[in-house]
Design a protein around this nucleic acid. Structure first.
Lengths: 333, 333
DNA sequence: CTGAAAGCGCTTACAG
DNA sequence: CTGAAAGCGCTTACAG
């Protein structure tokens, strides 16, 4: 790599010191208009660009935000990152992107590296495997601003921007009940993962509050992937369930359900309406799933980033607050 | 943000200079084993992490790669970024992610900022709007390694990792012909965008080489989005085309076609087989589109990143080479 | 309006 | 085996 032009290079040409050149370039009031113009002209001709690394070191502002996502090749997280990118760019911040791949060790490593890189703040969506919050306590002790999004760990003193999963589920299930669908099954995840637990309890509360009895054969647990939906549906049928609707805990699970239906009996497409949370909008052309809760991923990213930047600027203090993002129920036609 | 522990902090405690501490931490052979152990213990107890900004400044190695994508909230690019991330992490590089949003000005700005940040190399997929290669010439003059992926500008002396669109299209159309589908329509993009031009000519060549006449009513141009597919299909029908297959230039276009079919006459689903390039694998459960060319996005990302890192290390020279990634034709069942 | 001094936290030769 | 010196490219007080 070629040596880049520095302040000194410009200084020599215009017969000033690098200090004055630095000031001229940054439009410091100290410098006269004519010299500013001259300096800028020379800078441009040399293709000068300030060395941001050096600037970071002196100013102790890297103008950079570290992001940790569990996955990136997923519609939801890709959209969140898009939102983060947008907000960050608008505020003059660059983002360093990191993927934990749902791996606790990688997650820790990434966070440490990002802190070493002197990012001014961290935006993280916790990996499923994360249980021990040591790294986060370390981040806290360093007073590096951090905002959780989508998946958080409460009680550490960090703010979070998330979906109210229980409420979203409860409302959605109630919408089905209002439409006369009362025999609603649930293909859920595990209880030890928050979205599994919350969506399940939203489902249960909706039934309870509407005075509908929960039928044991209507519930299957298993996971969050397509295969779990596929197996889950089969199990449901084996258990003797005859639902008129199914609440699938995630979109991949809903796809698995579709696959199983196609294999078992395509008349299920008509007789069983599927509801899920967080569908890929591209799928709407297929009118499947019939119902879904829209998760405004881009907005989550933007809001989390905006919150973080406000913390960085010292406008707000980190605490243990949760900012809930509104979701809305959609009926696919 | 709290002040982080520095080499000097450790040095004071162990009664050494920061130089020796620096060496001990990096396992330099100069230092004796006992002191190394002692130093490392103290470093750990202080939660010491090297300031990577400072290290970059002295070593002039930022261990960082700049990435510019036109979009991130898109399956294809999200997967590419996943591939880049994976390779970069494996080689100890961090990635700074940037999104041009198909905007030439933003693209230029991002590249300049990334260079200012002293990234060791650049990975860019050119925005559709980019015509003038000034920024890239500037990058070239600085001898900053750069590799194009998916969308490239030839003739600037940079390597590229891309799909052979013409070949992929030609082969795919031939596969249809082999299956007895001879009345194949094409809903294409614009000629001034490379993928539009190449996919179109692949289509034409496949017909020509198979001795099938190109019917003018079978071709519609328009764009690369869902609405273009929607309008394109309607136009096709209006033009009097009665195809038994349609080659849609992109996946969104294929979705638009689906939408139009659903609206006009759902018997089209059976009578017209759709082919496209680059489908989201999640869609395979819907058996639509019937045929597609799989673009191995993750692999493109990995390969581009690996190539870049080899350039950074000086193992290979930048030139104007194109590395084509193999695609494969898939029949959906 | 311009500049000399000091320093950000680290590493790279070079001495001893 | 350990350290003093110099410097990476910039900015921040402080003088003049």
């Amino acid at each position: 790599m070629k040596k880049k032009a520095t302040l000194d290079d410009i200084a020599k040409i215009v017969n000033l010191t690098k200090v004055s050149v630095s000031k001229a370039l940054r439009d410091h009031p100290d410098i006269s208009e004519p010299t500013k113009i001259k300096v800028k002209k020379v800078a441009k001709s040399l293709g000068y660009r300030p060395n941001l690394i050096a600037r970071s070191l002196t100013s102790s502002k890297s103008k950079t935000i570290g992001v940790v996502v569990p996955k990136i090749a997923h519609n939801f997280f890709a959209h969140i990152v898009a939102g983060i990118q947008k907000s960050a760019t608008a505020e003059g911040y660059g983002i360093v992107l990191t993927v934990s791949d749902e791996n606790k060790k990688l997650e820790k490593q990434h966070i440490e590296t990002l802190v070493s890189m002197q990012v001014e703040g961290l935006l993280v969506s916790v990996s499923m495997a994360t249980q021990t919050p040591e790294v986060f306590k370390w981040v806290r002790s360093l007073q590096v601003p951090l905002v959780f999004f989508d998946r958080h760990i409460p009680g550490l003193g960090f703010n979070s921007v998330i979906i109210d999963d229980e409420k979203a589920s409860k409302n959605a299930v109630k919408e089905l009940l209002n439409r006369g669908l009362t025999n609603i099954a649930h293909i859920g995840g595990y209880d030890w993962i928050e979205i599994g637990r919350l969506r399940r309890s939203g489902y249960e509360k909706a039934l309870a509050e509407s005075g509908v009895a929960l039928r044991p054969e209507n519930v299957v647990d298993g996971g969050f992937g397509e295969d779990h939906g596929y197996n889950g549906f089969k199990k449901l049928i084996e258990q003797g369930a005859t639902p008129d609707a199914i609440f699938a805990v995630t979109f991949p699970v809903a796809l698995g359900v579709y696959k199983a239906m196609k294999e078992l009996d395509s008349s299920y497409f008509e007789s069983i309406k599927v509801l899920t949370i967080g569908a890929d909008e591209l799928f709407t052309v297929f009118s499947y799933p019939k119902f879904y809760v829209d998760q405004p991923a881009i907005q989550i990213g933007q809001q989390a980033c905006d919150l973080l930047i406000r913390e960085i600027k010292g406008i707000i203090e980190p605490s243990d607050c949760i900012e809930y993002i509104d979701t809305h129920f959609v009926e696919n036609r």
